[in-house]
Structure formats: structure tokens, C-alpha cells
Design a protein around this nucleic acid. Sequence first.
DNA 1: TTAACAGGTCAACGCCGTTGACATAAGGTG
DNA 2: CACCTTATGTCAACGGCGTTGACCTGTTAA
Lengths: 258, 258
Amino acid sequence: MTSMSDRVVPPAARRRRRPTKTGVVLSEELIVETALRLLKEHGADALTVRRLGLALGADPTALYRYFRDTDDLLLAIADELIGRTLRTWRPAGDWRADLRDLGLRIHAGALSHPQAAVLSSYRVTGRVHEIEAVETILGVLRRAGFPDPDAVRIYHAFVDQSLAFAALDAASLALPRAARDAEAGVWRATYARLPADTHPHIAATARHLLVDMRRSAYPVALDMLLTAAAARLEEVTEHAGHADPSHARAEDQESARP
Amino acid sequence: MTSMSDRVVPPAARRRRRPTKTGVVLSEELIVETALRLLKEHGADALTVRRLGLALGADPTALYRYFRDTDDLLLAIADELIGRTLRTWRPAGDWRADLRDLGLRIHAGALSHPQAAVLSSYRVTGRVHEIEAVETILGVLRRAGFPDPDAVRIYHAFVDQSLAFAALDAASLALPRAARDAEAGVWRATYARLPADTHPHIAATARHLLVDMRRSAYPVALDMLLTAAAARLEEVTEHAGHADPSHARAEDQESARP
DNA sequence: TTAACAGGTCAACGCCGTTGACATAAGGTG
DNA sequence: CACCTTATGTCAACGGCGTTGACCTGTTAA
């Protein structure tokens, strides 16, 4: 027995496509696309129900026929983003280069839609795209020669590091103009002016700080993680001695990217 | 010539402590503490100007005598969290152990106030506690022998990774009960049941995944970052050859923690 | 041809942050 | 001690937000 306030009907059941006053025919896809466009073109604060309605040429509350609330809409946006990121990744066979590439793509994808990334990057969806990503990354690591426990540990660290930095950097990018400018100014106005006698280490490195703090630390952190992983791999394969090193290779080759 | 809407006076200049209608005497500290209590007890959505005023026993707009706007208040909250974390940290002289300890403390501190951490961990405050943290960490790295550019790069990666994981893990901790349980269930209900022929790598490692995905990946990622840093340090000091390895040691000893 | 009803529209609710004007008690000054 | 300045608490109001319930109307299946 569904309550009267169940305005959202599943997409499959939609039949009547009644146009709005301005003649637009709404759909879940059109709304998500328009929301992404709004976010991209006009920044964080631009995504409100009223403005989205305006951009669509429909009454704002028409959205509630397609999404239960704004959080529901945001999850739909996030899912679309995951799909887009995975779709453009082409692993080439070198585990380190492939993971590096994927990490940077996740990061870049999040930064291109910061608001959506901030709200969604810490959620486990269990949806198809996510599962495909897990399978693929684990495959890359196991085929590289990592034993299963190491493969899982490194997979987890890699993925969460990527998502965590994506969220972090997306969050500062999603700040209102004024706050973002203010933060940039803090490094010049505050840190770069600390006297050497009270803050010797900051004063000595101020020049480097000014340059370095302007960009994301993710590429550096990612490379450090991969470096440590490579060291671990060397350790493991050395210890393995004369043991057969091809135990996980042969027929896994195909299933790498299903 | 300050504009008329400059309601906030610097804390040092405060003299008149006029009590509110309910008799409370306001202060920057009291407001921040009350905000943290609100966040802890009633979640992220509970922090509104009106509710904070209510909790303080003051007119909501009295806050604007202490903080320019809600963002300013948020930065003060963030800085207080940094201060609390730093206050309990006792570096012992081994750079790697000290940074590991500090990283774990940052993470733990954020998780003890998830709502506040989620809102504030990506902000640059430029306030006293943050400055002290930067100075101290840079000191640890430079005294360990890292050249300035490396010290800055590693500082940046270390801090942002700690904050990023803190925010990520705090965010899932801050989820509504139901959503958190649902996410935990996904690993058992979905991933652990995927058949080996369609998802060989997940199936082969399902046992490890179930265990590993339940805890934060931060300790692993932290150790990997420190491992890579140690490798870099060895590289640098080896290349230095016969050069004096104590160039940044002697009199910096005192100023380590001002 | 028609009747049901999905889906677009409208008005209103209760929040939110923020501002400008106002009131008053604190505290320096004589 | 009495005065005056002014910092600081209070109040009313503004515009914007997400969301709801009631209404209206074109589409579609029978």
C-alpha cells in the first residue's frame, strides 16, 4: 500500500510524456544532464531545485515526479559520473602505469563535477560500474604478481586514496568563489610572512610552500603509494625464489576487462 | 575607514562582556565549544545559526559579533580540532614513528567528531593551531635530512592524505544508521557472492575482501607513504656521498616544537 | 469516445543565513 | 560618582531554500 505522497514512478513505467508549458519533454536523463551542465557552468551554488526547473523550462516541483528528493537526484548524477570515468580508461598491461592512469582519471573526473563528487565519493553503491572497477583493479594487481592478501590491501589503499583525494580536492573546488580566493591568499598573506625566529621551518621553505600548496598533493601521494607497492612486489618475488612465477597469469588474460 | 557592517571586533579588543537575556556571557571559545557539542550530539544538520543561538541561550544574531559569517565559524571549529589533536602528540625524535603517530592521531581525532571533520577537513584556516602544525611537521622532515623541496612535497602529501582519509572515513561514520548498515551489507550480499566465471578476481579474494574492507585503508596508505618517503631519504643521503649529513641539525633542535 | 490518471503547475509552509536599526549596560574619564 | 561612548545583545524583516498538498489537463488505453 503506497502512500499518496509517492510521486516518483519507476522509469520503466513512464508512459505519458506530457510537455511542460514551454514545450520541453522531461525525462530522468534530461534532468541529470541539465543538472551536470548547471554545475559545470555556474558552480556549486547554481544547483537548486528552482534554478534547475528554470533551466529545464519547467515548474521546479516537476522534478519531484522523477526523484524522491535532491539527495536522490545527486546519487543519480554521481552514478553517471562513475560510468563516464570508467568508460574512458584503457589499461595497457603495465600495472603501475595503468593504476596511475586510472587514479588520475578518477581524480580528474571528480574535479570536473566537484559538487557531485563531494556528496557521493564515500558511498559504496554495489552497482555494476563499481563492481566492474573492483574486478578490473584486482585483476591488474594479481596478474602483476601480488599475492592475494597484498593485492586486496593495496587495492583498498589505492581506491580509497583516490576517492579521498578526489573528495578533498573537489570540496575546495566547490567552495564559493570568495572562500576559495581567501584560502589562496592565506598562503601569501600569512604563511609567507612568518618571521624566521618564531617559525624557522616555514620561513626557510616559504618559497617552495607557495608553489607546492597551489596544486593537489594527489599525484605525489599516488606515486608514493605505487612506489611502496613496487617495493613490496620486489620483496615478494625475490623471496619466492625458484617458485613458479606464472601461477595467476595464463587464462586470466582475457577476463581482465570483461 | 571600516564599513558600518563590520560587526566583528578582534578578540583581543573585547572589553565589555555584556550578558545575554538568559545571563550567559558569550565568548569565541564558548561558541566554538557549543557548536562542537551540537555537532556531536545532534549531527551535521543541527548546526544552524538559530539552533546555536538557542543552545547558547542568546539571540542567534549575537554570533555575528564574534564571527563574520557561518564559514568563519566553521574555520574556528576546524582550528580547534587541529589544536586538540596537536596537544596530545609527543614526538620522540624518530621522524617516521613520529609522523606515523601524528597521522593516526589526526585520523582518530576526526573520527571522534565526524560531523565537524566532514565540514572542515578541507579548509585552510591560517589560524594559530594550523600554523603550529605546519611548522612542526616541516621541522620533523627537515631535521630528518630531507632537502627543502622534498620536505615540502612530502609534508603536503602527508597532511592532505591524512585529512582526506579523515574526511572520507568520517563521512561514512556520519551516515544515518540505516545507510551505514546497508553499505556494510553490500560486501557480504553482493561481492562475496559473485561467481568465479564472471568475476574470477573478486571470487578468488572474496575472503580477504570481506575482512579488509571493514576497516579503514588509512593505516596501510600511511605506511606506504612513509615507506616511499624513507626510500627517497636513502636515495638523497646516498647521493650526498661524503657531504656533511648534519647540515640542518644542530641548533634547530630547540625550535622543533615552539 | 471516453474516463482514468500521470504528470505539470500553483500556492504555501517552515526553515535557512544575513542585515540594519535599535536598546542598553559596561567601563573609561573627569 | 556621574557622564558619555560605544560594544554588544536584541529584534524585525528580507530573500532564498527544499518540500508538500491540492489542483488542473493532456495522453492514453479500453
